[in-house]
Write a protein that binds this DNA or RNA. Sequence first.
DNA 1: CTCGGCCTGCTTGTCAGACCAACAGGCAAG
DNA 2: CTTGCCTGTTGGTCTGACAAGCAGGCCGAG
Lengths: 253, 253
Amino acid sequence: MAFSEVVRSPAYEQVAHQLREAILDGALAPGDELPAERELCAQFGVSRTTVREALRALQAQGLAVAAGPTAPLRVPPARDLSTGPLRDSLVHLLRLGRVPLADLVELRCALEAAAVAAAATRAVARPRSAASPAVPPTTDDAADHLADARAALAEMRIVGDDVAAFEAADVRFHVALVAASGNEALQLVMLAVRDSVSAHLRDALAALPAPRRAIARLTRQHEAILAAVEAGDARDAELLLRDHVMGFYRGNA
Amino acid sequence: MAFSEVVRSPAYEQVAHQLREAILDGALAPGDELPAERELCAQFGVSRTTVREALRALQAQGLAVAAGPTAPLRVPPARDLSTGPLRDSLVHLLRLGRVPLADLVELRCALEAAAVAAAATRAVARPRSAASPAVPPTTDDAADHLADARAALAEMRIVGDDVAAFEAADVRFHVALVAASGNEALQLVMLAVRDSVSAHLRDALAALPAPRRAIARLTRQHEAILAAVEAGDARDAELLLRDHVMGFYRGNA
DNA sequence: CTCGGCCTGCTTGTCAGACCAACAGGCAAG
DNA sequence: CTTGCCTGTTGGTCTGACAAGCAGGCCGAG
């Protein structure tokens, strides 16, 4: 016969587990405040030390954030999880040499390519949010995001050789593009991946020998991508985006 | 003039930060034991409470693991970082974001399509791990993973109408396929996404009216995909995989 | 000589109680 | 109405303590 290993989990872990499940199941919605520490002590029947250790674990995972010095912890919106802990995990893997930068770039490429393809399909399916009146007017309409992308593009044309300003506009452009896909999951994962490689991107941009020319070239590529998306040409948009991302990575790294 | 906001970080955060940096910089190598709690108290000049909260945070991020009930924490090997916290982060993100199933499926599709395309390219680039003798014989060679996929495929052919067995083989097949891409990042994200949809997949499989026929059809699709990958036909492999995943999703949901 | 048992000193896990600083809200004086 | 204070509550930190588990050495019985 086979014996199963005895498992002993510390109290703080059980407390953390219960709180985590409550948050993930929606019993504690984003924006909600967690009960005060002393309150949790009473509910779980443990000391404050234990509760605090559990809270630190939740905090490290990004499932609870400190609202202020004396305010109770709050449940963050899902978006903060991608720019917070998920990005951190990727950065840790990068720094420890577990995953090479090239793999992350390839991942980003795949994600964003899928996003622009979806955005293109969506853009042509209902050009001006008119097709389905049954759906309430969602705030994140594809048209809005494409307008955002256009605005970012306009910014790029006037930044001259200010690489910092260009990079800010570049971020806005890519984020808007992915948002236009309407796929929340894609967007969240993409944000994290992009964030984790952004440090390298920044260095590459700063080291450009001829910023003005490079910026002009990148801006033209952006224009082409956006045009393809707006025209509903998924295949073209995907290819252009792949060229754009991989070209930049190869040319500078 | 502009004043910058005063930033106050708690002691436990500073302790966690220093330890984190030490680990990421390699000052504490994987496998090493962290100093005992009381030792850290002395070095940082804080109380054990503070040190313990910092350690819980590190633990939650996967940068330290408990070796035993009374043993000091250890720095985990890098591979545990990938399978643990990154996956948790992704699962949390997707659960908390209330991402619709369709979005997840689309995401999985994009990831896996990129993976098989890369695997196909790689398979034809060095068919039998001969091209680059400079590289030490990596244990996770593409050929090994493709062999794994073939083994899983063989299993599928003999499961009959045992959907549970088929699903196990299906998981092995897809995991092996993505592993063959050689892109660790892709693999990690893909595993987490698959985890998030696996419950739905299981239900869909269990509810099949004619399991035997469906299993046969799915197995044939798998065969076609693997054949395309082995032939180095990236484009074909990608299209076949998209059909496979989306077809199953649409047909059952 | 070997082996089981015991004792000691370490570690983590947990607790209770206390203090401080910072914030929020009510309240009174101007 | 504004200003300033006072107080209750919260998180952040410390202290000291105890239990439980593990590793190592020591010792006596066989």
